[in-house]
Amino acid sequence: MEQKVSFVTFATADLDAAREFYVTGLGWTALLDVPGEVLFFQIAPGTVLGMFDAVKFAEDLESAGAPAVSGVTLAHNLNSPGEVDACVAAAERAGATVVKTPQKAAFGGYHGHFADPNGVVWEVAHNPGWTVDASGRVAIGVIG
C-alpha cells in the first residue's frame, strides 16, 4: 500500500454546526457540500477533510453502533506564536471551545488546542523544527 492519505473523514453529529463553523466562521470554501450528508474541504494538494453526517457514516460502514474517534487531533502549523494566538482566537470567535490556551510547548515551540462544535480537536502550533521544502517534503528537526 502506498504511504499516503487522501481523505480524513469524521462522523459528525451536527453537520449544520460544522458548516457554520468552517464555512461561515472560519471562511473555508467547501469542495463539495451535500446538505444532510457530507461536507468536504480540500486542505492540501490531493488531501480532503470530510465531515460526514454520523447517521449516514454508520450506514456507510454498515455498523449499528455510533462511530467514535478518540485520541486524535488535526494539526495546523503556523509561522509564529502570534499567528497561533490569532488563529485560536479566530476559531473561538467562530464557535470553537478552547481546550488548551496557547502556550510554550514541551517540544520547544508554542501551541494551543481547540475543539470544533462537533468535538474535533485541532492543535495550532508554531514549531521552528518543522519545515516543508519546495517539493512538499516534511522535515522534523529537534529544537534547542
Rank of each mutant, 00 (worst) to 15 (best):
A134G: 12
A86H: 06
L74R: 09
P102V: 03
V132W: 15
E83R: 13
V138Y: 06
A89Y: 01
T73I: 15
T73A: 12
N77A: 14
A64C: 00
H113G: 07
R93N: 02
V5G: 12
A58F: 05
V98D: 00
E83V: 10
A68G: 13
A11S: 12
E20T: 15
D60P: 00
A115G: 04
A91N: 01
T12G: 03
Q42D: 08
F7K: 08
W28G: 01
F107I: 10
D60I: 02
A86N: 06
V142E: 15
C87T: 12
F40P: 02
T9K: 13
Y110Q: 03
T9Y: 09
G25E: 00
D60W: 04
V132L: 13
E20G: 11
F7S: 04
T9D: 11
I143Q: 14
W130V: 07
W130C: 05
D133L: 12
W130E: 01
G82R: 10
R137G: 11
V98Y: 00
A13F: 11
G144I: 07
W28M: 08
W122V: 03
F7V: 09
K4V: 07
G129Q: 03
D133N: 14
P67L: 04
V48K: 07
T24A: 09
T131R: 12
D16S: 10
V84T: 03
H126Y: 15
N77R: 15
